[in-house]
Design a protein around this nucleic acid. Sequence first.
DNA 1: GCCCAGGGGTAGT
DNA 2: ACTACCCATGGG
Length: 295
Amino acid sequence: MSNSYRDEITVHVPLDLDNTLNCGQTFRWNKINGEWHGVVNRQPLVLSMNTESKTIRIRSTSPEFRQQELAEGVKEYLGLNDSLGSIKASGINALKRGYAHFVKQFDEIFVPDTGIRLLRQDPWEMVVEYLLSTQMNITTIKKRIESLCELFKENKVSMDYNDYYLFPTRDQLAGIKEEDYRKLSFGYRSKWLKQLVEEMDINQLYQLKNQKLEKKLRFLTAFPGIGFKVANCVALFGFEDFRAFPVDVWISRFMEEFFSKSGNSEKLMVEGQRIFGDYCGYIQEYIFYYIRNRV
DNA sequence: GCCCAGGGGTAGT
DNA sequence: ACTACCCATGGG
């Protein structure tokens, strides 16, 4: 049982922890007694925000965080340096080149005060989690992922009387059989994950960071179980490639309803890029939030 | 029981 | 290129 190191940040830009950590871009954060509990950079991390003083309280097991001071690391992870205003302006600019009539609606969808920010997450974790996410609702995905993490008792880390499980490494998963995945109710995804763990070169995966989106997608979609939607999620949430545009059932409905566009996730990705421009991925997250929460 | 879920693979047009 | 169908399983 170890005690935590603590720090604080005062934020001067829009940020909503609830919307950011509960909007479908991440699966391993849980809110307990008003605090968000997660694991980042292989350390437990607890965040809570005082919305009046605009202060984030931080707890973690180390004063260091991705070779940075804890507070700086959290700022980086939460994407607090992203300018929501510039991203919105970029989207409006793109819309004016062909869908100017949608600008007013867009203004209601991309509301910076919603405070959603794209997290800087680990690519390997994203690959595994979004491969498992196929055709499951978010509640179920979170349960399945947690059960996978809890297979590895050696990954349990304690902090301030709470337990956290680090996400399993590729080498750890190499010892898991397809039937073990089926026992975790992974269903038909079991053989995909088994094959992914056997065949994916982790170094090649991490090298995608500096590659173009098209190259990322080509590499990722070569694996069974990773199609265009999952690959775009990895590019967006694991590599901060803001030109990625994941198309799930919700985004697909949105494209049909507001732009009369239909087709598979690859075709709609291209449409999304054309309509919303270079930050279409960031914008996609606001669309996802909007379309799922409207009355 | 029913429909749905941050889809993907495959076979048949 | 497009469509139809199947895949496992649990949430609501």
